[in-house]
Design a protein around this nucleic acid. Sequence first.
DNA 1: CCAAATACTGACATTGTTGTCAATATAATT
DNA 2: AATTATATTGACAACAATGTCAGTATTTGG
Lengths: 219, 219
Amino acid sequence: MPSAAKTAVNPAKPAGKRIRRTAEEARRLILDAAEKRLAQQGPEGLRLQDIARDIGISHPAILHHFESREGLVRALIARANTQLRDTMLTALAGGHTNSDASDHIGHVFEALSDRGTARLLSWLLLTGRASENSPTHNIMGEIVEALQARRAEYAAEKGLPAPDKEDTLFMAMLTANAAFGEAIIGRQLAEAVGLDADGIKRFRNWFAKLLNEHWDGRN
Amino acid sequence: MPSAAKTAVNPAKPAGKRIRRTAEEARRLILDAAEKRLAQQGPEGLRLQDIARDIGISHPAILHHFESREGLVRALIARANTQLRDTMLTALAGGHTNSDASDHIGHVFEALSDRGTARLLSWLLLTGRASENSPTHNIMGEIVEALQARRAEYAAEKGLPAPDKEDTLFMAMLTANAAFGEAIIGRQLAEAVGLDADGIKRFRNWFAKLLNEHWDGRN
DNA sequence: CCAAATACTGACATTGTTGTCAATATAATT
DNA sequence: AATTATATTGACAACAATGTCAGTATTTGG
């Protein structure tokens, strides 16, 4: 026993007052903090200790609620997925009779870029965690379905021929790609070419118009 | 001095045969390996030891050539930037007289998705390393410039009014966003909706056509 | 009021990663 | 051939991050 006073383990610390949340509440708090970190600092900013400090708890508490760091990540992904899907579908359902695409487009873009959703998802894709959760699969399927339905409805209304299925699909893909891209490089891009917030809005409108014209012209 | 035999430092190991490259060659090798790792495994796959092992060197060799991990990252970014810019500009310059956009679009998309360039850049953006290197700034500026010039030329040829500058800008932005998005979520998206490689090609053509129509119609 | 359940904590263990250093091998130069 | 320059390496240092654990505080239910 070479080293003498090794285990100093001070058994003091009566301490007191400890905030105790319900498990659900705690999980939500932690996920929020993690999401914020991720959006702000990227993948490497997702450290248990940091997250814990942000909300004033100890990092083992996180492990208590999510088993492991990977568990936290999975929960994060799952939540982002459902959130994204909900936003998307309600955005599509919102337009009612009026078939102007600009609303939809705007909603879709905002859903992705508003918070770190796109960043979170892209990180998920970059790290190859995609296949586990079948994330885009369900979402994209539902959305294309909804879009195609709307389009068919619109076509019937105007007595036009039924819309080409693949064409609808491509419109959806383009929108998804563009929105995703914008969420990630949008800011940099806009800044690079001297576009302010209003310019970005104009861009979105321009895109919506482009799609609208195609929507009408192609049917 | 409690611990006795602490420094065992065996001075043996005559060893022999050691590959010695020129500094430039070594740097290139390392950057290639790093890029591959990054493209395959995402941001968290960029570990010095792994990269070193991939090319059969020791990790201090990397540090010798790049000072630090951050140095490696910066070099990586710088190289990706110039590569991307070159590809883009040559793609734009290639079309000569023929003003069909599909060629350009294809080139742009491929430039981004072929190797991990987009992934690399997106990671750079996600981690907030963007401002340091003024990455997109120069690139985007040059490209819009080139595009606008081409468009003006095309308009003059056909005796049409000069193209709207912002319209050109928006076309470029949309293309950039879409290409970027596709590079990241494209595979997942295509898979999700049951598109094969040929379908992806059809999508790109569809997009090029959309832009072409706009190009003509708007002028 | 007591007991069980559990959210939470501090201290520690473990592991992995970057970075340092002295030593060594190899290429270039004289 | 000897010298210089430098690419390369093994061993170690320092640090950071996740994960473990035994114990503490707080709520809930009897």
